[in-house]
Simulated scan of single mutants.
Amino acid sequence: MRVLVTGASGLLGGEVARQLVHQGHDVATFQRRPSGIDGAEDFRGSLNDDGALRSAIDRAEGIIHLAAKVSITGRAAEFDGVNIEGTRRLLQMARMAGVRDVVYVSSPSVAHSGSAIVGLGAEQADPRHAHGDYARTKAEAELLALAANGPDIRVAAVRPHIVWGPGDTQLVERVLARASHRRLPLLDAGAALIDTTYVDNAASAIVAALHRMEHVHGRAVVVSNGEPRPIGELLAGICDAGGVAPPSWSVPGGLARAAGAVVERFWTMAGRKEEPPMTRFLAEQLSTAHWFDQRVTRELLDWTPAVSLDEGLARLAEYYGSGTTGPLA
């Protein structure tokens, strides 16, 4: 099968492309910079470049769409242009090119309004109540994608929850950088129970969705390791693997959320490019329980995660050379 993977220069997109190549598929990749995936045909460009996108889609039978603007802050128009309009353009071109299957890689944040998530499934994407422009535009794009599902093209949405692994700059590097400078507090003592997804597992679930489109098209599923842990323990495991001291000071979650909202507005208005010390979304993620029931996901995808959290942390320790990570309590 000829499969196009967008956003393959990222951690998750790259692993998806590698797994497809390993399975013997004819793989193309499309992103702004070279993907570096051995065995894949690489196309470069943006989702707003019709000519480049058309060339990448040509001959594709399936598309896995990961390319997105992923950021804590930024101008709303930038998120709209990439995440909503870019997805709309890709779906239109996919239909015109006769692509049969599209897996849209979404996010659990599309259905998260800030309250605790305890054992839920894939709730309806809700742009109106999503927190932040990233979540809002991903929700809009997911609704667009699933609305395109029909007799001529099958579309499914997969929402990997907090993906991490060696080489991760979205979670792991931020945790280690903040912890090393004592800028990573535990909110509410780090007691919130959360689940995450090791990158290999997230990629294999996404690939499984492409293979199981008959069962999953028209639906959204949330993917995680299915091993909820207190966030304080998870952060300690990541810090241990990276060879830095874990966070040891705590801040009330309500105070952090209020401060984060103020800081986020200031950063956006000022057009600052560096990462702010706190945002409302980040404070919610660090202080609110969010873990999901994986039974429906595993049944629909005929999939189970191959790498446990403890094995993932051991691989992370090997990557950083500390070799000190052991099983979490």
Rank of each mutant, 00 (worst) to 15 (best):
V103W: 01
T325E: 07
L47Q: 07
T325H: 13
T268K: 14
R183G: 11
E275S: 13
P327G: 12
R128L: 14
L186T: 00
D310C: 11
G98K: 00
I231K: 00
R298A: 10
A177D: 11
S224M: 01
A52R: 04
T297R: 05
R265N: 11
H22Q: 15
D188K: 01
G98Y: 02
R315H: 14
V296I: 14
D310L: 10
E214I: 10
I84T: 13
R44C: 13
V262N: 08
T297F: 03
A241K: 01
A209S: 14
G13A: 05
L234E: 06
R178D: 04
V102L: 13
K138D: 03
A8F: 00
T73F: 00
E274T: 15
G260I: 04
A209N: 04
P327E: 11
G321N: 13
L171F: 12
G242C: 04
L171T: 09
V3L: 05
P108W: 00
T169R: 15
V207S: 05
D195F: 02
G114S: 06
R298P: 03
H211R: 15
H65S: 06
L12K: 03
V5D: 05
V110W: 00
A56V: 07
T304L: 13
E318R: 14
S204C: 05
K69C: 12
A111P: 06
L47F: 06
A202N: 05
A17H: 00
P276V: 00
A208Y: 03
V118M: 05
A245E: 12
S287L: 02
P228H: 02
A76P: 09
S308Q: 12
G237H: 06
Q31P: 08
M278H: 01
L328K: 01
R265D: 08
P151F: 12
I238W: 01
P185N: 10
I84K: 14
G254A: 13
G86T: 07
P327C: 12
R178I: 10
D49Y: 07
R100S: 12
L187D: 01
A28N: 06
A208I: 08
V99K: 10
E299M: 10
G254S: 13
G312S: 13
G167K: 11
L234N: 03
N48S: 15
V21E: 06
W267N: 02
G323M: 12
D152R: 15
V163Q: 07
G167V: 11
H65N: 00
G232H: 00
Q294C: 04
A329F: 04
E264M: 08
G232V: 05
G323N: 14
E284K: 00
G98Q: 01
A125K: 01
E142M: 06
V5K: 03
G254P: 08
G253S: 06
V163A: 03
G271I: 10
D152W: 09
D38Y: 11
V221M: 14
V223G: 01
P166M: 11
D58K: 15
A139V: 02
R257V: 11
R272L: 15
R295P: 05
V110C: 03
S287K: 02
S180R: 15
L12Y: 00
L300M: 12
M96S: 12
R219V: 11
G45K: 08
D195R: 05
E311W: 09
A147N: 13
M278S: 03
V163W: 04
E264V: 11
A77Y: 09
R89T: 10
R2L: 03
V103S: 08
